[in-house]
């Protein structure tokens, strides 16, 4: 038995899953407190979806324990499903059913009584701004509306734990903002949310993060602590040709890593005071005149890259 099941909404220990020779998830431990928005962050292939599926009891682990809301998910999958809710990465609702029919169907499957289903779907549709479209077929909705519908279907039975696998992939920025507003509201009402994402800006919004790579959790902490714990200092170098700047500084003494971030280069150094003049000289040597160097606050992506050494998961 896992003892912290009383405090934790989700407790995972030694979780392992292989697909043939591929070790998708290796010995993962997690503890998510009630009311958290917990993020699983990592590049594609890191094992995010596999972990989410095992938490949702739709995939059986090879080894390990999962307790969600006090229920052993491995031994009692069906009982666990009553109080959790899972939104798969791929849109999983019926495109040939309308919004209202989808909600009604999932409400019934989760045992929500008819009257309550009507009231709650009305409320959720209103909050998501989908009420005028409730007779529209799900297949005719935009990406953002589909995600909201998915969320409504996942919330119709007022779950205690919500599992969202890359919920905002392929969703426009405005819809993403709306989506997060709904998530924050849910947290207020005490729902525990575990979500996976490949978007670093989205990761920053989580209360805690697990940085996932190669099926293993490399770090697990609040975004603030993760940034503080990053070794070295971060410099941002803005220039018209950031690629040239990166090539100029890469591999120089004291440079721990260089990462392209749009029109600038994030350079991690051991000692900012000492390296800024050196880098400025090195860049000038390459004939780049417009570079501006300034200390910068690290983002989660910088932390991730620092963590993985020279591996750059999101380089274009």
């Amino acid at each position: 038995m896992i003892t912290e099941s009383n405090e934790s909404a989700v407790a995972v220990r030694g979780l392992t899953k292989d697909f043939g020779p591929v070790r998708a998830v290796r010995n993962v431990d997690l503890a998510v407190a009630r009311g958290e928005i917990f993020g699983l962050v990592g590049p594609d292939g890191a094992g995010k979806t596999t972990i989410m599926r095992m938490l949702a009891a739709v995939l059986r682990p090879d080894a390990g324990e999962i307790v969600v809301d006090g229920v052993d998910v491995v031994a009692e999958a069906e009982r666990a499903k009553l109080h959790l809710s899972y939104m798969p990465q791929r849109f999983g609702l019926y495109e040939d059913l309308t919004i209202a029919e989808n909600i009604f169907f999932y409400g019934a499957l989760f045992g929500v009584p008819r009257g309550e289903r009507i009231a709650r779907s009305q409320e959720l549709l209103e909050a998501a701004g989908l009420l005028p479209f409730r007779r529209r077929l799900a297949g005719q909705l935009s990406g953002g509306m589909k995600q909201k519908l998915g969320l409504i279907c996942a919330l119709i039975h007022t779950p205690r734990v919500l599992l969202l696998d890359e919920p905002t992939t392929g969703v426009d920025p405005v819809s993403r903002r709306d989506f997060w507003a709904i998530l924050y509201n849910l947290r207020e009402s005490g729902v525990t949310i575990v979500l996976s994402t490949a978007y670093m800006d989205e990761a920053e919004r989580c209360s805690r993060l697990a940085l996932l790579h190669g099926g293993q959790i490399r770090r697990c902490d609040t975004p603030q602590h993760l940034k503080e714990a990053m070794p070295g200092a971060l410099l941002a170098i803005a220039a018209t040709h950031p690629r040239d700047v990166r090539d100029a500084v890469s591999g120089r003494p004291g440079v721990l890593g260089a990462l392209l971030m749009g029109d600038r280069v994030h350079v991690r150094v051991d000692d900012a005071e000492r390296r800024i003049p050196e880098l400025r000289a090195a860049i000038a040597d390459q004939g780049i005149a417009d570079a501006v160097i300034a200390p910068a606050e690290p983002g989660i992506e910088d932390v991730f890259v620092a963590l993985l050494g020279e591996e750059t998961p999101h380089e274009p």
């Binding site: 009891a57 899972y86 609702l93 045992g111």
Partner: peptide
């Protein structure tokens, strides 16, 4: 084929 199975089996339906 349509990807609706994963969502369906995440519910308590038997």
């Amino acid at each position: 084929e349509r990807g609706t199975m994963e969502q369906l089996i995440s519910t308590p339906v038997t």
